[in-house]
């Protein structure tokens, strides 16, 4: 594959520029390998995050030629042989240095969410919770999330500084969905989903779903059902009460 050209953002939130690098690319290399090679040979202090190198931890999120991606799962042969590859940090979060951004805002959103509250009923037994596979599949689907925040990065609500204060973003909407659809969860989060977590802010553009490396159906399976529940609640409170009481 030969020697290839790269442009990498170097700098912080206040100033920075795209710097040119060259790197020898061999079979099977991913963009993260290139960043590591450049780090070892030419730019020891090039900041990047990574851990698993296999798409499991969600650390290595960057923008590659303007597209939000996991650097460890983006193969060099996805690009043309003479294409210059540009690596820049996520846009929605403040840059710490080079390709590394300050994602602490996300951790604050998670804190606002009422955690799992196991129901104390006949299905909470000495041998553990009794739940059928079909009934946990939805929740499991959302729990595949590796917290790469690529979805947060592309959500226009979060890119808007003011709106961001009112919406937890797609990642945490599916966290909420995973709790709400857990067959043994007892908490009521619907008012909070409307008021504090800002379900109304999402206008279903589906940009988040498009970039999710775990193929989580964020909008269709997560956000839309939550929005429906919110609407349900405020239309028909009796129905809701009924559902909660008879939840298995």
């Amino acid at each position: 594959m030969g020697n290839r050209k790269f442009k990498i953002y170097r700098g912080d939130n206040t100033k920075g520029e795209l710097v040119d690098y060259n790197c020898d690319v061999t079979e099977g290399m991913v963009v993260l390998d290139v960043m590591h090679r450049i780090q070892a040979d030419d730019a020891n202090d090039l900041a990047c995050r990574w851990n698993c190198k296999a798409g499991k931890c969600g650390s290595c999120s960057v923008e590659i030629n303007g597209r939000p991606k996991l650097a460890c799962m983006t193969r060099m042969n996805e690009y043309g042989d003479d294409e210059t590859i540009t690596i820049t940090p996520l846009k929605a979060f403040p840059i710490i240095k080079d390709t590394v951004t300050d994602v602490s805002w996300n951790y604050k959103q998670n804190l606002k969410i009422k955690p799992f509250s196991p129901a104390q009923n006949k299905n909470n037994t000495e041998k553990g919770l009794v739940m059928q596979q079909v009934d946990v599949e939805r929740t499991q689907h959302f729990r595949k999330c590796i917290e790469c925040y690529l979805c947060q990065n592309v959500c226009h609500v979060i890119r808007d500084q003011e709106a961001k204060e009112k919406f937890v973003g797609p990642r945490f909407m599916i966290r909420l969905a995973s709790l709400e659809m857990h067959p043994m969860d007892d908490a009521d989060r619907i008012p909070a989903i409307k008021e504090d977590h800002g379900s109304g802010m999402c206008n279903i553009t589906r940009c988040c779903t498009e970039v999710c490396p775990e193929d989580i159906q964020i909008t269709d399976d997560g956000i839309i059902p939550l929005k429906e529940r919110v609407v349900d609640r405020y239309y028909d409170p009796f129905m809701i009460l009924f559902r909660k009481i008879f939840k298995k």
């Binding site: 799992f116 196991p118 041998k127 553990g128 919770l129 059928q132 596979q133 946990v136």
Partner: peptide, 19 residues
Amino acid sequence: RELEQWGAVFDRTKEGLIN
């Protein structure tokens, strides 16, 4: 089992227990 009470969702057996 404690982890399950804290929110872990393991794969299930036919009986609905942790597989």
